[in-house]
Design a protein around this nucleic acid. Structure first.
Lengths: 212, 212
DNA sequence: CCCGCGCTCCACCTTTCGATTGATGCCGCC
DNA sequence: GGCGGCATCAATCGAAAGGTGGAGCGCGGG
């Protein structure tokens, strides 16, 4: 095989400026070829089905319906799918975990310098996982302190609390009894070291456990 | 005057990718000249002092200390200062108002299409105010519904609620009785159309009345 | 196989919050 | 000078939330 085979890229971001920036940054680097760029998650899923794409650079938040993590899951579900490298502004735990669970090969922040970006794309193309230092650190923290790790259900409840719902509303929405909601909340308070729903929301957003 | 005099630009954004994108987008348009791009608000203030800059494209949030609104205020405070066009991802009321009060000539969202961006820069260079349609709409809303405008004290209380404090803690912190805190909260709920502290926080953050 | 953990639920009690009503002093504006 | 908005405080009452101490079930790992 020739060493000169370029890595073929698909860019998915709803900001035209960011797409242009990625193009500019990556096309000046040797060994990259931007095949297409799209402004929606849906378009990314469609285009990623076509052969000839090695790596998809995927934003997490789009203006439209589908979230980047869903698109990532849809893409990586298929056989011989391209690698997906998540590239976003946010470094919240919830987003990171959602992306990794969805099958993302890597997770980068948009404030990454161009060299780091290029290196991560090469790493991803080779099938190896690429995490931004900040992200890696955050994951290490999470491993070390399992206290701050909420369960799936607890996170769900906390998110609804953050949305302003009462225990009664949450219980209806999740088909639970209020007792169960309270029980989850007690555990959440213990894990976050707080004693009220509002401070739990504050702690949760501060630690990026829930999206704002 | 010659029609060919280019508009000289300074780009301030902490994301290398975004800076590259803005360069790419604006340099393909005729009549623009990107003089420099900087990754910090401090550098933007310094460079904006030099003559030969017509418009500063300013992000609101930087990784470092200084916020974009502060930098905007510092730049526009001087005589013969360049116009500042705020270009950010966020459309929260608090950010918008801070930027406008700081003397920004315009406010754009990063998901704006290139043509809109170019048009806004030309508008700003001519000294006229340039607002993204979304932003203009939001400001109209605010004008129409003065109910969403919290008083200084109410905002202060709501911020503390968002930080997770109880009524008792807030009353101590602000040297008030709990009755007063409750009174403020009642007014806040009425203005935001909610009926609990958590939903008030949700509504407040959604409308950008308080910082997260 | 049993233990731990996550998820579900119950009962009882205390504290906090929210709703209502009403009042006072201050300040700016017409 | 009166009127309205803002900030301050009081009292009361019912509803919601939090604290405590349980308990059963399913599932995966040691």
């Amino acid at each position: 095989m020739t060493a000169a085979a370029p890595i073929r890229l698909l860019l998915a971001d709803d900001h035209p400026v960011v797409r242009a920036g990625l193009r500019a940054v990556l096309e000046t680097e040797p060994g990259f070829e931007v095949v297409a760029d799209v402004p929606t998650a849906e378009a990314a899923v469609t285009l990623a089905e076509r052969p000839g794409i090695d790596v998809v650079l995927m934003d997490l938040r789009f203006g439209g319906e589908m979230r980047g993590s869903q698109a990532t899951a849809a893409i990586t579900a298929r056989e011989g799918a391209p690698r997906v490298l998540v590239l976003t502004t946010y470094d919240s735990d919830a987003d990171i975990l959602a992306a990794i669970e969805a099958g993302a090969t890597g997770y980068l922040l948009k404030d990454a310098p161009p060299e780091e970006l290029a290196a991560a794309v090469r790493t991803a193309a080779a099938g190896k996982s690429a995490l931004a230092p900040t992200i890696a650190l955050r994951l290490m923290d999470r491993m070390r302190a399992p206290a701050t790790a909420l369960t799936r259900r607890e996170t769900e409840v906390l998110q609804l609390v953050a949305d302003g719902l009462s225990n009664a509303q949450i219980s209806k929405k999740l088909f639970l009894s209020q007792a169960t909601v309270k029980s989850h909340l007690v555990h959440i308070y213990a894990k976050l070291g707080v004693d009220s729903r509002t401070s739990a929301v504050a702690a949760g957003t501060a630690q990026g456990l829930i999206r704002r």
